[in-house]
């Protein structure tokens, strides 16, 4: 059995553009923040999935990246608990955290909202992608100072070598007050680009 993993597909969302396997797939005419960009990118795929509009901005970003990534491949050959999602970022859910904090700071207008609070955990986007695609494998979300392929590559390789999973969505989904960026990739044992730190770093940086 082949014990090596390969990057079969990858998707980058950056500067109001979406690239899949290096090719530009969507471009928003105006660079007007994540909320409008995510909506336009969603409409471009037209998936008719109303839950999308309930998500906070970073979950929308992760969701959009996963939709474009998985749009070009089939995951049907894997059992739902054989597909794992391992993500990372540097700002956790800070933008949504600030939104929640704003609903509770003033005692005169203290109205914490459950639909905001529930998104103040970074792994909620893993939940959203899992619900959308019926994925039931391993989950982990790491918070790192800056994009760090090592943690994700190690985690995915370890899960594979211990037979916990056969297919993986790995990557980085970050949202700050001023910027957003997503880089998701799909890994299996089907021959393509080798799944290692160098390759992941190159894919992330070469756009």
């Amino acid at each position: 059995m082949n014990r090596e993993l390969y990057v079969n597909n990858y998707c980058i969302v950056r500067d109001h553009r979406i690239y899949v396997n290096g090719k530009l797939c969507f471009e928003s005419p105006v660079s007007n923040g994540l909320r409008e960009f995510a909506k336009a990118a969603y409409r471009n795929l037209a998936p008719n999935y109303n839950k999308f509009f309930k998500m906070d901005e970073i979950s929308k970003l992760g969701f959009i990246a996963s939709e474009y990534l998985l749009n070009y491949i089939s995951i049907d050959e894997y059992k739902n608990d054989e597909i794992s999602i391992i993500l990372s970022n540097s700002h956790s859910t800070l933008v949504t955290d600030t939104n929640h904090q704003n609903t509770i700071s003033d005692p005169e207008s203290f109205f914490p909202s459950p639909s905001v609070f529930v998104y103040t955990l970074p792994n909620i986007m893993i939940g959203e992608i899992s619900i959308r695609n019926g994925i039931k494998g391993e989950n982990a979300f790491f918070i790192v100072e800056k994009f760090n392929p090592e943690i994700i590559v190690n985690h995915i390789n370890n899960l594979f070598l211990t037979n916990k999973s056969r297919a993986f969505i790995g990557g980085w989904v970050n949202h700050t007050e001023t910027d957003y960026e997503a880089f998701l990739y799909f890994v299996t044992d089907k021959k393509a680009l080798p799944h290692n730190r160098q390759v992941i770093n190159n894919l992330y940086n070469n756009l």
Binding site: P114, G127, I135, K136, E138, A140
Partner: peptide, 17 residues
């Protein structure tokens, strides 16, 4: 091991899946 319910972001799966 870990596993996702793929059911709801706040409510646990009714089947414990």
């Amino acid at each position: 091991a870990s596993a996702n319910d793929a059911n709801h972001i706040s409510g646990p799966s009714r089947t414990g899946e």
